[in-house]
């Protein structure tokens, strides 16, 4: 009920009707998994460096239509963060301007339900750009993969400690790790987690 009210106000704030499609009914059994690489972990000060996203239709991960984008930051990337995500300043020379990136991203996700691992952070990062630009926050439904994992797991080990680290979940679900962690790879792997979790009742 509350979310309906939120959606209502959010819709009212939209300042560009070209993006009304974001508020359409989400397509059935279609999802978008996305992940961002950022300069740090604080949405207030940090910036997005790249976005990776992939669609899921039923049990298929549409890797052939994946979304992969670099974003030009407003300031130089610190040495510290380069070491973590291995995106250098030079890698972003041909990247998109932030608003451009947001536009492309919104067109890719449409009104689909969003799926992610610690999705809240990635949503906040997008909202940081979206709010001042279009006046709204991401209106899409959201599904937290580690949440589904936790719920399925807790059934069998009530009161137990559940390891929710990304690689631990991958390992527990016996999924193959695809190379290094970057936005697209993580989105792909998260998509696999989601599809598998969708199909199994117990872990």
């Amino acid at each position: 009920m509350l979310s309906k009210i939120f959606t209502h106000f959010n819709r009212k704030n939209l300042n560009n009707e070209d993006y009304a499609f974001l508020f359409d009914e989400p397509p059935v059994d279609e999802y978008v998994v996305y992940d961002t690489e950022t300069t740090g972990l604080n949405p207030k000060v940090d910036e997005i460096l790249s976005i990776g996203a992939v669609k899921i239709k039923g049990n298929k991960i549409l890797a052939s239509e994946k979304f992969e984008l670099y974003v030009q930051p407003t300031k130089e990337i610190s040495e510290e963060s380069i070491k973590i995500h291995q995106i250098r300043n030079i890698d972003l020379q041909n990247g998109s301007k932030p608003n451009e990136a947001i536009e492309k991203f919104l067109h890719f996700i449409g009104s689909s339900t969003l799926v992610g691992y610690y999705l809240e952070f990635d949503v906040n990062m997008i909202n940081k750009y979206l709010k001042p630009y279009l006046g709204i926050k991401l209106p899409n439904k959201q599904i937290e993969v580690s949440g589904i994992y936790h719920d399925k797991k807790i059934k069998f080990i009530p009161d137990g400690h559940i390891d929710l680290r990304f690689d631990s979940i991958m390992k527990d679900l016996e999924l193959p790790i695809f190379g290094k962690h970057d936005a697209t790879n993580d989105a792909l792997m998260t998509a696999m987690m989601f599809v598998k979790l969708k199909n199994i009742s117990k872990i």
Binding site: N59, K60, I61, A63, S64, V195
Partner: peptide
């Protein structure tokens, strides 16, 4: 670029 990933039970 032309491949998708699928999951089957």
């Amino acid at each position: 670029n032309s491949m998708d990933i699928a999951y089957y039970k």
